[in-house]
Nucleic acid binder design. Structure first.
Lengths: 143, 143
DNA sequence: TACAATTTAATTGTATTCAATTTACTTTAA
DNA sequence: TTAAAGTAAATTGAATACAATTAAATTGTA
């Protein structure tokens, strides 16, 4: 043990978080390719499948992403025909994102993805739940 | 409960992994700015502080990154003077990355970062260890 | 009312990520 | 021994991330 041990990669908590996040997202790729979605587009669609309509600010709050990421992402998704982007009439600073019928239809195909993905993660249901709780303990700090 | 509940953002394990990874990396920024390092550059330096010299292939294996990411990253770090990039003489396909004395000196300043970062994560030591073990259970699957 | 402060998206610029391909070098096998 | 197969890094192109700034709209207040 020496004063530099804390700087070893294996002593970090952030590194396995960062690495496992990227690895799991990579495993989604073949499944999401069928829907013509990237992972970030997929989680944006998840929000829309649930709420049907939301503005960029609120979407960003849910996904922890800002307009610098979302603006080009949403324009791409609009070009694919999955969403529409419409200025709010009551407050034109807000941009409302709505699911199109094509985007709504995608939900049916997406339904099987979570189960398929679950098979890719080598954790028991109990471990997954434990991990879930710990991650949300980190996230819940960020208001 | 309906058949689409599995598609809710809150039902996902990957999403909090992805979000908390990005949030924690963002918290490193003010600390790493002082060292003129990004997070990815920082974890590459961690490996080098430990092993002094490594080739791109081996570094990629440790960080779960490929040459498409590492090549530009390492060129930037070379320009900053923290590392040198030298072709192996025994096998010229390999590129060896070495720590420079400037890069070595940085270790002294970096030493305090892990403790500072620990304060930013709202987990008890026991929870942190539990999270660490679960994440490595995911990573250890990836050979 | 005017106008300063605030808020929301968009834009700009830098730095990843990663799949797919290419280039250069090394090893293998006919 | 030399052509084919394999390997390592670099390159290319698309899509994020994110800090910092800008533009447009709204709100608060003197």
């Amino acid at each position: 043990m020496n004063e530099y041990d804390c700087l070893k990669l294996e002593s970090q908590l952030c590194f396995p978080l960062y690495a496992s996040s990227r690895i799991i997202i990579k495993k989604y790729k073949p499944l999401l390719d069928k829907l013509d979605l990237t992972y970030t587009q997929y989680i944006a669609m998840m929000v829309l499948w649930e709420v049907k309509e939301i503005n960029v600010k609120e979407l960003g709050k849910k996904l922890y992403l800002d307009s610098g990421t979302l603006t080009p992402l949403l324009k791409t998704m609009e070009n694919k025909g999955y969403i529409s982007r419409v200025r709010s009439t009551s407050d034109e600073r807000n941009l409302n994102i709505c699911l199109t019928s094509k985007g709504e239809k995608l939900k049916e195909e997406a339904k099987k993805i979570p189960l398929e993905m679950g098979k890719c993660i080598n954790l028991t249901p109990k471990e997954s739940l434990e991990l879930y709780k710990l991650l949300y303990k980190i996230l819940d700090e960020e208001i």
